[in-house]
Simulated scan of single mutants.
Amino acid sequence: MICKDRVVVVTGAGRGLGRAHALEFARQGARVVVNDLGVARDGTGDASDGPAHEVVKEIEQLGGQAVASPHDIATEEGSAALVATAIDTFGRLDVLVNNAGFLRDRMLINLSEDEWDAVMRVHLKGHFLPLKHAGRYWRSESKAGRPVDARVINTSSGAGLLGSVGQGNYSAAKAGIVGLTLVASAELCRYGVTVNAIAPAARTRMTEEVFAQTMAAPAEGEFDAMAPENVSPLVVWLGSAESRGVTGRVFEAEGGKICVMDAFRHGPAVDKGARWDPAELTPVLTDLLARSAAPEPVYGAS
């Protein structure tokens, strides 16, 4: 019961990773706000509160407490209402898990402006707005003298860290989430809030076609490395009091593997102390690149 009595919001919690997170938080004693619009894999179609209510029902069958949230977290009003739902229902908010997202995959030269905007909206704006309203709540609690021990877990991706062919919009949004995580961790620490990100690999509606083409299904009784439930223990730990002091970090999670990701760091450098002439730079940059680590390959690159 590592999260006993903590109040947790999980966005995109009707299916896949979000559902797995919500259920694991409930098993660990948390009270959960299950947010989901119930739309299709690509974000289209009519909204439905059915998936969120199904997860609430599952949590209640476990003996836990949960409430459904049908709010659109990529709008100012929806994200404010989401945070208010947690506070009005359970009296406070301790953990925000930003997980909601969908795909509009296309090679860059075929990617439409609408497909770019839609993915940026749900992933990047859909992280920023709930974080903004949760942060405002925690700031007001801190300024009122009430203790805050809060957590934010954002969802990036290997595509955002290394790139992924055919996913320029998704990769850019997920890279933006890493930058947002770093800034939020620095800005909110004074209020008792830690902010971290995960880069999960799991079989969900968003990835099932890829895994079906590249990986055989596990045999009966064999460990299913791509089950979304494998990622949730890390998310729950990051949402618990145990993770106090861990902030501004990105963790890759796949199967039984957890990896602390190293993002951009200052590498080899040369300082001339004056302006360079372009003709001077070939040997200088050749040396710098030779002394730096080679980038890891982009997913899907030949």
Rank of each mutant, 00 (worst) to 15 (best):
M1L: 11
M1S: 14
M1F: 05
D5R: 03
V8T: 15
G12M: 00
G14M: 00
L17I: 13
R19S: 01
H21T: 07
A22F: 05
L23Q: 10
L23T: 08
E24H: 14
E24M: 15
A26Y: 15
Q28D: 10
R31P: 04
V32N: 10
L37S: 00
G38V: 00
G38Y: 00
G38I: 00
A40P: 01
G43P: 14
G43A: 09
T44K: 10
D46F: 00
D46E: 15
A47K: 13
P51H: 06
A52S: 04
E58P: 01
I59Q: 09
V67G: 06
A68M: 08
P70F: 00
I73L: 10
A74N: 04
E77V: 12
A80S: 13
A80P: 08
L82R: 13
A86H: 03
I87G: 06
D88P: 01
T89Q: 11
G91S: 11
R92I: 01
R92L: 03
L93W: 04
V95G: 05
L96C: 07
A100S: 08
F102V: 04
R106D: 11
M107A: 10
D114M: 02
D114C: 02
D117A: 13
M120N: 10
K125R: 15
G126L: 03
F128E: 03
F128P: 03
L129C: 10
L131C: 12
A134I: 01
G135F: 02
G135V: 14
S140N: 14
K143D: 14
K143Y: 07
G145K: 06
G145F: 11
D149S: 14
A150S: 14
R151G: 11
V152H: 02
V152S: 01
I153T: 15
I153V: 15
N154G: 03
N154I: 00
A159W: 06
L161Y: 05
G163Q: 11
G163A: 14
G163W: 14
G168Y: 12
A172I: 02
A172C: 08
A173E: 05
A173H: 03
V178Y: 10
T181E: 13
L182N: 06
A184H: 08
T194N: 09
V195K: 08
I198D: 06
T204A: 12
R205F: 00
R205Q: 12
M206I: 07
M206D: 15
M206W: 07
E209P: 01
E209V: 03
V210H: 10
Q213Y: 08
Q213F: 09
Q213P: 01
Q213D: 15
P218Q: 03
A219P: 02
A219Q: 15
A219F: 07
A225M: 11
A227M: 02
V231F: 05
S232M: 14
L234K: 07
L234A: 13
L238F: 05
A241F: 05
E242N: 09
G245V: 13
V246R: 12
G248Q: 02
A253Y: 06
G256N: 10
K257V: 09
K257W: 08
V260G: 06
F264C: 11
H266F: 15
K272N: 06
R275K: 05
D277M: 04
E280F: 04
L281S: 01
P283R: 01
P283Y: 03
V284L: 08
V284M: 07
V284D: 06
D287F: 04
S292Y: 13
E296M: 10
E296N: 12
Y299C: 10
A301M: 12
S302A: 13
